[in-house]
Design a protein around this nucleic acid. Sequence first.
DNA 1: GCTAGTGATCTGTGATCACAGTTTGGGTGA
DNA 2: TCACCCAAACTGTGATCACAGATCACTAGC
Lengths: 237, 237
Amino acid sequence: MNSTSALAELPQLERRTLSETVYEALADLLASGRLAPGDRLSLRQSAAALGVSVMPVREAVSRLAADGVLEVAPNRVIRVPVMSAAAFRALAETRIAVEGIAVARAAERRTAEELATIRRAEAAFRAEAEATKPDRTRAVQLNRDLHFAIYGACGLGPLQEIIARLWLKAGPVINLDLRVHPERLLQGFALRRHAEALAAIEDRDAAAAAAAIAADIREAAEFIMDRGGLRDTQEED
Amino acid sequence: MNSTSALAELPQLERRTLSETVYEALADLLASGRLAPGDRLSLRQSAAALGVSVMPVREAVSRLAADGVLEVAPNRVIRVPVMSAAAFRALAETRIAVEGIAVARAAERRTAEELATIRRAEAAFRAEAEATKPDRTRAVQLNRDLHFAIYGACGLGPLQEIIARLWLKAGPVINLDLRVHPERLLQGFALRRHAEALAAIEDRDAAAAAAAIAADIREAAEFIMDRGGLRDTQEED
DNA sequence: GCTAGTGATCTGTGATCACAGTTTGGGTGA
DNA sequence: TCACCCAAACTGTGATCACAGATCACTAGC
């Protein structure tokens, strides 16, 4: 060992377990709405589809189930929870409260670089949403990127993790709705709220930023609830 | 089937898996501070101690690890995370923000019954704390009961789950400190803040209730940080 | 023609085995 | 006496097997 100082600079390469990979694959399926509320999941089938044994899938599913993103019925059936309108409303209100805190803090504490990142993310989403033929999947991803660019400036790691879990939980409902009613994208509600949030963050106006994000969340939730996008009872697919 | 109406009254008995039982056992160990930051955990030893195979322990540990309550080092060593002072501060600030929301909502929405429950919980904690020879373990449990009696009145299920996870994460640090410095209980900080919170909830004064809980959390956190209760680096036990 | 029952096949859960990587402790070398 | 090294025992991870319970298609009986 002749150059210990050089070795110290080596980045600690993270150990990726199969379980983690499977978790991310499932989480992506849920966040993008390809797994819809009520859809069932089989350990063996998922394992076969992913080319692994059931073990990693078990661990990933149990983590998702612990977060309420999946649920195992007393029949031992794994499925994406079917949220009642009341549950969805409670989730939306929780998001408004928690994400409101994050945005408010972000507005107060954002650095110039963080502001630049947020601005870029806003522009990227705007470009996609205003495109003549917007790609919904991409728009969803860019919307997520924008929100988390904002939350990333709040300076509170635990809060960001909480929000990530809330998004995972709300993801299937929101993205399923977006697949069925893509016109919501075109109405530009989100665009307006994002612009308001960006302006407020530029001005370091915490209250206005929180209000903009709250309106963004509330309008999307109300749109979905008005459309009856929530099934009160499970349907067969 | 001659009495279908009677069958309909049967309570849906929940299925308890071994993993769940193990999870609760480990969570209790962590929440009560019997597992301290830095302590290591072995799957096989835990399984042997609980009289089960490693499988249920694996699932329980993976859930705990997903919540950041346990961590698996790149060496594949499972241990209770050693929080830096900065991480602990961030956790405390997150708790102040999130639990502040819950208390504020509880103050506005609490029913008479919920208020009675909170009042009883406050009296129980006070009785234990003012006892001539208070039982620390019991006091910790009663403190937890009081806080969650309040949060239970906020009307937002997802928010309560978030707070439960935050408590699980902070539990080892706080309760370890309480074991080392039991005198904090006697100084009555918590008692005063609890009384303030109770009074504010009675008056439906959301801001005052949030301030009281914020002070409760902040004072406990500052006490711990002043005492140097946080190890920046791991120690062997 | 319709319902009740029955067996094959699926489900998740738990136990056990196999494996690669890590830690550790005892011994051997200088 | 100290440093090094090697082997045994441990670690979590993944695969496989066994099992009880649930589901579903099908058939026997009315």
